[in-house]
Nucleic acid binder design. Structure first.
Lengths: 230, 230, 230, 230
DNA sequence: GATGAATGAGTATTCATTCAT
DNA sequence: AATGAATGAATACTCATTCAT
């Protein structure tokens, strides 16, 4: 599998930028419609109304086209995360996590088809290193957010906590848009948030032995439960 | 992308069964080493020491080879889940979830390379329907397990709870073996388990405002925390 | 293109003969349905309910299967021709030619699909020599027939006359069953017969200038003409 | 058998036209030498001194190469027929038919090898519809020619007469170049012409009853004739 | 920079044929 | 004789990439 190199050059001219934009938009459309295997550079060029040569002017190879799409996706995610991390008017960790989950869900629910593809097929072509990089950046952003609430965290390592949180949220959001199960958005938000809180705030032994926090409340909770069925 | 049909014939003769076994083993090796795109049927045949024709005798096309690998993976997972679900000597939900997480982790940590591939590339080729089927079966198995502890669940819909649990555990296990972060196996087990418990036992509002178990206990918990850093 | 050898052995056992019969029948069906390119020995064997090995017991290669069909066709044609040639109660050449045309038309109109194939595709695979042989045999048979009326023939060479007659009749019969134009059988019979008579009885120069039989009668003939339109 | 589509694009540039020309010339050579089955696209490309890709740039598949050859053949035939039909200095029908036969013979005798192939193998791959189209066009052209002499024709349907004439001439010309019997060109011309005249100018009953040259015997024959119709 | 015609390595798949049982 | 699993040569076709214009 060819290494998906970065774009050949960063276009500075307005026209070039537009061209790159058009090419990527077209690529996205085609990938969404025909899948990775059904996408080819000649088709992209033709549909984008440019010549193959022009595509190769900006993208060194086919995979770099897809990688660019992925890159953008990762950047959007990061932007969203940092946005949320930057909101200082948040009451507590729970609220913050919930905000984060909501924001990422919303991001994915825009152009769900494309995101579905990005979350699915691209795992396939992104080379280890760049994928790790993206993940690392996302982890780092989440670390920012968590830092503020570090006193509430049961984890001694902020980095680990961030990695776990990142995986959990992104995985569950992906799973949600891929499977599109009959769960309401509110419900899935709740579920993911609870999990993350469970992850961040429970201690190994605490949760598994004495369970005051579950025991006591569980009954009443269930009694009050009015969560809509899936 | 061609529909990955089921194997052409189910070999009943000992020799045939062995052949299929060899072909799949070889495919796995090659896929692990060269990735999906780098795998071709002629290579598989050659490396397996059989003729291409023989490969096509049992597998109608390239993708069906990979699909067969995936199928087996899904079956192993199911077997493990049902195994755990069947263990009746389990103290409580927490313990059961932990058992499950541990078992699935262990499964993935055998032949980690192959599982890495299976969890990564195969999303890419498995056609929607069969992928959904696999997921559905896994959800169903987990539903079995949860049923026993349904009185502890904060969710009104067992099915939803099962889907969420399935996604969470499998996603996190995958993330763990793919990223192989410096988290100990014990730690990741703990983390996933806590998340699932958080997911299953927290109620929407409960967990986010008044919960004593977070506030009150968190400090002491952290104080006692001796979790090794990632 | 592989030389279509003759059948490997002429089966003498009843069972074997039946097998050969079944194989050929099946081949015919498949060739009619899927064409030459869509016919393969494994399919023939499977459909005939025998093993490929058995097919190869009697037919050295794929083409020999088709050749056998062709051979049979040629033999039928010959038989028909000789039959007609043997009828001694025929008034004159015209009547004899008409009998011949009618008989060959009838032969082709039985199993028209198969004959269509035989007349079409098999030209393609029959190697020069065997095709020539078939044609030569047919010419020879027709020569027999013509010999009796040699005094009426305008041709100095009986052999040439026979070849021309053979070509003309077989070509036109083929054309008729292939194109299946809206010409009645009676009409086509008439037309072919007239052509052959024209061929056999006109003399080079005669026919183009002075021939009374054309000149004189043509007008009146046309006047009376009430032949149904095609 | 794959549908032999039309050429992918009609080359307008001089260079492209030459390329197509070269490819077709090469194809013809190879088909003549190795037959249809022995012709493959890679070989064609190699021998033509272009890349396979280039072949596929202009011809969507192997069969379309052959179909293009066939198309050209049909066009040549049509051109020749229309040419002859357009000659107004012709004395009579006989002369006109003779001219036509001669012209078509001459056409086939140029590059006899190629025409041999075209007349033989291509029946095999030309899909019904396109073959019918070609034949129909040829019939139509011949209809043009016959129209002028329609007063001499014994057939009430010009269309039928044209079809019969077309079949007869083309079949016999084919037969002649395929079998290459020891018949002089002059002789075959004569023979075909006479046949066609016989076909066109004899009337069903006329030729078989009252014709002076037949006269004597015909009546008694027909009187006794009670052959069952097919 | 842009173009797109030309390239040709690469690959899935078929099927006639064999031969051990 | 019959079987049919195994063989593997053969081939149509694609598509990423280049480069002369």
């Amino acid at each position: 599998m060819k290494q998906a190199q970065l774009p050949r050059k960063i276009p500075t001219q307005a026209r070039s930028r537009m061209m790159v934009e058009t090419i990527l938009k077209t690529t996205a459309k085609i990938v969404v419609k025909h899948g990775y295997a059904g996408t080819n550079t000649n088709l992209v060029a033709q549909r984008a109304g440019v010549s193959v040569g022009s595509v190769y002017q900006y993208f060194p190879n086919k995979d770099s086209l897809i990688a660019a799409l992925y890159e953008r996706h990762a950047q959007s995610m990061n932007r969203v995360i940092l946005d949320v991390a930057g909101q200082y008017e948040v009451a507590d960790l729970q609220a913050h996590i919930k905000l984060l989950v909501r924001a990422l869900l919303q991001l994915h629910l825009q152009e769900p088809q494309l995101h579905r593809l990005l979350d699915k097929d691209f795992a396939f072509l992104s080379n280890e290193s760049s994928e790790h990089q993206y993940k690392a950046r996302i982890s780092a952003s989440i670390e920012c957010l968590l830092q503020r609430w570090s006193h509430q965290l049961a984890h001694s390592s902020l980095q680990t906590a961030a990695w776990l949180t990142a995986q959990m949220i992104t995985s569950m959001v992906k799973a949600y848009i891929l499977d599109a199960p009959q769960i309401s958005q509110m419900h899935i938000e709740q579920a993911i948030s609870c999990s993350v809180i469970g992850l961040l705030c429970s201690t190994p032994d605490a949760g598994f032995n004495q369970h005051a926090y579950l025991r006591g409340s569980a009954n009443s909770v269930l009694a009050r439960s009015s969560m809509p069925a899936a």
